[in-house]
Design a protein around this nucleic acid. Structure first.
Length: 163
DNA sequence: GCCAACGTTGGC
DNA sequence: GCCAACGTTGGC
């Protein structure tokens, strides 16, 4: 019997980065990047759920203005993050062994830089975005799932066509 | 397996 | 620079 593979529903994400370290301008210049150095189990587990083509909001943290700066897309699904084995790397994890990698990275590619940053203050003020994780105080996860309606709303605020 | 101490994230 | 909110560590 022929097996028909049901296409997986697209999932939507938000990833945080400090623009002083790596911002949307860097991603635009590079085209794509390794999203490495994630050392939080919850964020790691979410990264392992990401599929090629999933849209990603690129969020600028620890900067002014805080907010969503652009749109990206998953280019390659989770695979071991080499930096965990490299004693020279700031992301080195001496407790991780190569036969059983503990940390993973994904590759993320540039899609668009927004005309303007959609600020965290705006996100918090918009009733349509009630419940969006990034608007919750104390939500530190650097990789977050985003509901489709929230994702599309952010694009709308950015003046960007739906993803 | 509990939980206090400590470290980090990240908004304010 | 402060500190709330977490996550992790380690003593018991």
């Amino acid at each position: 019997m022929a097996t028909t593979k049901k296409p997986r529903r697209v999932r939507y994400w938000l990833m945080k980065s400090e623009p002083g370290v790596y911002g949307i301008d860097d991603l635009e210049r590079d085209g794509w990047t390794y999203w490495e150095g994630v050392r939080n189990y919850q964020a790691r587990n979410l990264m392992r759920e990401m599929k090629v083509g999933d849209p990603v909001l690129f969020y600028h943290s620890s900067t002014k203005p805080l907010g969503v700066a652009g749109l990206a897309r998953v280019k390659r699904e989770a695979y071991p993050d080499d930096t965990q084995f490299d004693p020279q790397s700031p992301y080195y994890d001496p407790k991780s062994v190569e036969s059983e990698p503990r940390w993973y990275r994904v590759d993320v590619e540039f899609v668009a830089r927004f005309e303007r940053v959609v600020t965290l203050a705006e996100l918090k003020a918009d009733p349509a975005l009630d419940g969006m994780l990034v608007t919750r105080r104390g939500q530190r996860l650097s990789v977050q799932p985003v509901e489709e309606r929230h994702f599309q709303r952010v694009l709308e605020l950015a003046g960007h066509p739906p993803a």
